Computed example of a mutant assay.
Amino acid sequence: MRVLIVEDDEVLARALRQALQHAGMVPDVCHDGHQAQVLGCVERYDAAVLDLGLPGQDGLSTLRHWREQGQHFSVLVLTARSRWSDKLDAFQAGADDYLTKPFLEDEVVTRLRVLHRRHQGRATPIVTVGPLRYDTIADRFQLDERHLTLTAQEQRILAHLIQRAGQVVSRADIAEHVYARDLDPDSNTLDVLIGRIRRKLSPHTLIHTERGRGYRLALKEDPDALA
């Protein structure tokens, strides 16, 4: 999951970034509303953590601009403002959730995962493709009911693929959601990581290469998924 953190408190932003990275997410950070407005429209995010009191442009104006421009990624407002009127303004501007400071970092992670699951249209936190099972809240995989051990990058790639099970996912799309905005992976890196994941999913064949298009995670015997 790729997340934009918009927070002018650099210490807090750094702590959030570390917490999200530890949870297997890919966070970008900015500290003012104008930059956030641009990033939210030109980059592809799954969610944003947005403070309301920002320099340059306040969080509500930034959020309204995103929605007016057709950006529908989930937005978790994270602010010290606890009045009902502030919450109402945030929800009317297009927020999906609202959390007041102080907060637990684990709660931010959990709320982001729940928002992402809702955004994907899933009523359950468990995604299953044949023998592969993914708990979106705990961020854990099981294969044949056994815990699947993955590196951080392998975990992010497989999570991204299973969230889009049955769909072709381009290499560029995977790179955008797995690597930080300022990191340009080597052209062979994804091939190597996909190869490692495939070996760990053995003897099952779940990741299929669509030449010139990308990768698809699906059961081989499912003709609809592979059409």
Rank of each mutant, 00 (worst) to 15 (best):
H22P: 00
A225S: 13
L78C: 12
Q92I: 00
Y134K: 00
D222Y: 07
I126T: 11
M25E: 04
Q71P: 03
V114C: 12
E176M: 08
H160Q: 14
H22K: 13
A180N: 08
A15V: 10
L217I: 12
R113G: 03
V38K: 12
L63V: 06
L190H: 04
Y45C: 04
A93V: 11
L63K: 00
Q57R: 08
D96K: 00
V108F: 03
T62H: 02
L190S: 02
H177S: 15
E221S: 15
R81K: 14
V114W: 03
R198E: 12
E210S: 11
V26H: 03
G195I: 08
A180D: 09
A165C: 15
A36F: 04
Y98V: 12
T149R: 10
S170F: 12
A159H: 06
L78V: 14
T149W: 12
V178M: 07
H204D: 06
F73S: 00
D58H: 05
R156W: 05
L99K: 00
K101C: 03
H177Q: 14
I174L: 09
R156A: 14
Q21N: 13
R164M: 10
A225W: 00
D32M: 09
L201S: 02
L99N: 01
A93F: 06
H72F: 11
V109K: 00
Q120A: 08
R196Q: 12
R181L: 14
V168Q: 03
R117E: 14
E10W: 15
L219T: 05
V168T: 11
H208L: 06
V3R: 04
T189K: 14
I126A: 01
V38R: 07
A218F: 05
T136I: 02
V108A: 03
R14Q: 11
D191Q: 11
L201G: 02
